[in-house]
Amino acid sequence: MIERKQLKDRTQVTFVLPAHDPEGAVSVVGDFNHWNPAAHPLQPQSDGTRAASVSLPAHTSHSFRYLAAGDYWFNDPTADHHDGTNSHIHT
């Protein structure tokens, strides 16, 4: 699930996944963090999910994917668009 919160000239985007699906560590990686898996690991939340937030410029588009343990890459089914390889979000 993707949550958005409009700020002045930015959008806070929060990427949310269930606590154990998939198992192990998961990071959100994309053009906004130079595809660096260490930049935005999803952290456990009090509601039983795990999440990572990123502040992005408003009115922009970004490519991203999730990277789970075992080099398992996957897309977000709730993304705004998919291009066959990546998920895309519009702020």
Rank of each mutant, 00 (worst) to 15 (best):
S61A: 15
V54C: 10
G70W: 14
D76V: 02
A38M: 08
H62S: 06
V29F: 08
T78F: 08
T60M: 08
S63Q: 15
H20M: 14
H82I: 05
L67H: 11
P37H: 09
A39P: 01
P77T: 06
A52F: 12
D9M: 05
P44C: 13
G84E: 14
H40N: 15
L42I: 05
L67M: 13
Q43G: 07
A79M: 07
F32S: 03
L17T: 00
D9V: 02
S61M: 15
N75Y: 00
H62W: 15
R50Q: 10
P18Q: 03
V16Q: 04
T49K: 15
P41H: 13
P37Q: 09
P41R: 13
D31K: 06
G48W: 07
T11Y: 03
G70H: 14
V16F: 04
A69T: 15
A19N: 08
H88I: 02
W35V: 07
D83T: 09
G30N: 03
A52Q: 12
V54L: 10
V13A: 01
H34V: 00
A19V: 02
S27K: 01
A69G: 13
A51V: 08
S55R: 08
G84W: 14
H20D: 15
V26H: 00
H88M: 09
N36W: 06
S53I: 06
R50F: 12
S27D: 02
N75W: 00
F74C: 04
S46L: 06
V29R: 12
A79G: 07
S87I: 02
H59A: 15
N33G: 09
F64G: 02
R50P: 08
H34T: 00
P22H: 00
N75L: 11
E23P: 05
A68D: 10
F15P: 03
A19M: 14
L67N: 09
Q12V: 02
W35E: 10
A69W: 11
T78I: 01
F32V: 02
T49V: 08
K8E: 15
R65W: 06
P57K: 08
T49L: 12
D9C: 01
N75M: 12
V54I: 12
N86K: 13
R50A: 07
H20L: 14
L56N: 05
D76I: 00
T49D: 13
T14M: 04
P18I: 01
V13S: 00
D21M: 09
A52W: 13
P77V: 07
A79F: 09
F74I: 04
H62Y: 10
S46E: 05
V29C: 11
S27M: 03
